[in-house]
């Protein structure tokens, strides 16, 4: 019981931690979704040298553990004259990492859009911008929602590693409270419950897209 009391009394710490996790993940998605789409367009449409270069970078990034990327960016940015506080360094690494995965997800999703669909768009005079905005991306949003949802949950999970570079996110908060009050169970259980809540929210979003999909695609 004392554990729950500790959590309740430290609720500000938890809320601050959860708010940091959410703001990191949301800012990351706001940046990495457009960047991922753009990269996927380059991966499908650009001429060979640029396309190959980007494909190599994306493949390489997907081989790096996130914590190491975060360390390299956190300690590397000052070397090139950029002093960022941990939150911003964390956002940069989370965005770079998530973009690499999303680029691959979007690339695969673009390929899954029926060819004749795209050909019809050309025949009716849709420009490339319209083709992506009106024909390809809406279909990708509907069809690839489950994979994108999985990636969002992965990004939430990755964001916890930023505690190691002292970003005060949710796991940092749980660790802090547990260390200060010598009651490990309740603080971590509270943090895990909050993570579970976030993942439920993502899954609900995916379910809504799937309902749209059933209506439109049968």
């Amino acid at each position: 019981m004392s554990g729950l009391l500790v959590v309740w009394e430290s609720r500000d710490v938890f809320l601050w931690g959860a708010a940091n996790t959410l703001s990191l993940v949301l800012s990351c998605l706001l940046l990495s979704i457009p960047l991922g789409i753009l990269s996927a367009i380059v991966l499908t449409e650009a001429t060979a040298p640029l396309r190959r270069l980007l494909a190599e970078v994306v493949d390489l990034l997907r081989c790096v553990p996130f914590l190491l990327l975060a360390y390299v960016i956190y300690y590397g940015l000052p070397e090139i004259g950029l002093r960022l506080d941990p939150w911003w360094a964390g956002l940069v690494s989370l965005t770079v990492y998530t973009t690499a995965y999303l680029a691959e997800i979007f690339r695969a999703a673009f390929l899954a859009v029926a060819r004749d669909n795209i050909e019809a768009a050309h025949a009716f005079g849709l420009s490339r911008l319209l083709l992506y905005r009106r024909i390809i991306l809406p279909q990708v949003a509907i069809m690839a929602a489950p994979v994108i949802g999985n990636q969002v949950i992965t990004t939430i999970r990755d964001s916890a590693l930023l505690m190691i570079i002292t970003v005060q996110e949710l796991t940092f908060a749980a660790n802090f409270v547990s260390a200060n009050h010598f009651t490990p169970f309740a603080p971590f259980a509270a943090a895990i419950s909050l993570y579970l809540l976030m993942s439920f929210a993502v899954e609900e979003g995916v379910r809504r897209m799937e309902r749209i999909r059933t209506v439109r695609y049968g």
Binding site: I156, Y195, L196
Partner: peptide, 13 residues
């Protein structure tokens, strides 16, 4: 629960 929980959180837990 495991799918939603960050691995580092699980390790500490």
């Amino acid at each position: 629960v495991v799918r939603a929980t960050p691995f580092v959180t699980l390790v500490l837990f």
